[in-house]
Amino acid sequence: MSEMSGKPGAHTRLSVLKTYKLFVGGKFPRSESGRVYEVTDTRGNWLANAPLASRKDARDAVVAARKAFGGWSRATAYNRGQILYRIAEMLEGRRDQFVAEVAAAEGLSKAKATAQVDAAVDRWVWYAGWSDKVAQVVGGANPVAGPYFNLSTPEPTGVVAVLAPREPSFLGLVSVLAPVIVTGNTAVVAASERAPLPALSLAEVLATSDLPGGVVNLLSGRTAEIAAPLAAHQDVNAIDLTGADAELAKELETAAAENLKRVLRPSAGDAGGEDWFADPGTRRMLAFLETKTVWHPMGV
């Protein structure tokens, strides 16, 4: 009380530190292992403790993603688009928080961090619009010599494991996550190992955006440790290796071959080989789609 007595009305507040947690099945659990690791800014100053996910967290995340797949893949494209757009709205509302987190995590100026967050929000909106258009681009009626309709439609692959790029921590994450879920896949994401905080905060946005629990599951920790069980998991249908270095990517692709997972390799060169601010194109969406073709009699 004594230090407050000088100035009436003024008082020292206890600092309220945020406990960053995983995001699995729409809930925010701690790591099953009870472990955390220190996340620092580029100068080595402590920012927060992030959960250090174990292989069992990865397993639980896959179970949650599988459970969510039925509902999410059957939702109408319109509905999925609306939900993705809603996520963009929520991101916009928490822009300042993400700018601060990105700036701290990557040692960026406020202007550069703002540019990254803006680009990320714009990318959500861009992908949200694709939900009901992708089928028109890669599906359609095929010409056949007979009295049949022959129709091809793209369908989601299933549960997709995503290794988010190490940098940019936020734009990179959004750029690999949105194309996976917009088409109806569900995702288990290993966030950037060094800068996981923007990803863990994104989970809070996802949880309040009508996105069904389990569609996106976010894990933080050692990428290699989380990725190995995901790549070998028989109930994961595809894996995006963007966040893996060349050596790890090779190892994971070998493990992924066991159940013929679809594999999206990291772009050539080092992991920074991709220009994240450029127009992403449809490559990432199409990597996780299966084409279903049906024959249908035309009738008389």
């Binding site: 397993r59 896959v62 599988r66 069980p229 070998a232 998991h233 028989q234 109930d235 994961v236 066991e258």
Partner: peptide
């Protein structure tokens, strides 16, 4: 059981 024998997590497809 499959996880214990193969070391890989199995799934309902199996």
């Amino acid at each position: 059981r499959q996880k214990l024998t193969t070391g890989r997590y199995s799934g309902p497809d199996y």
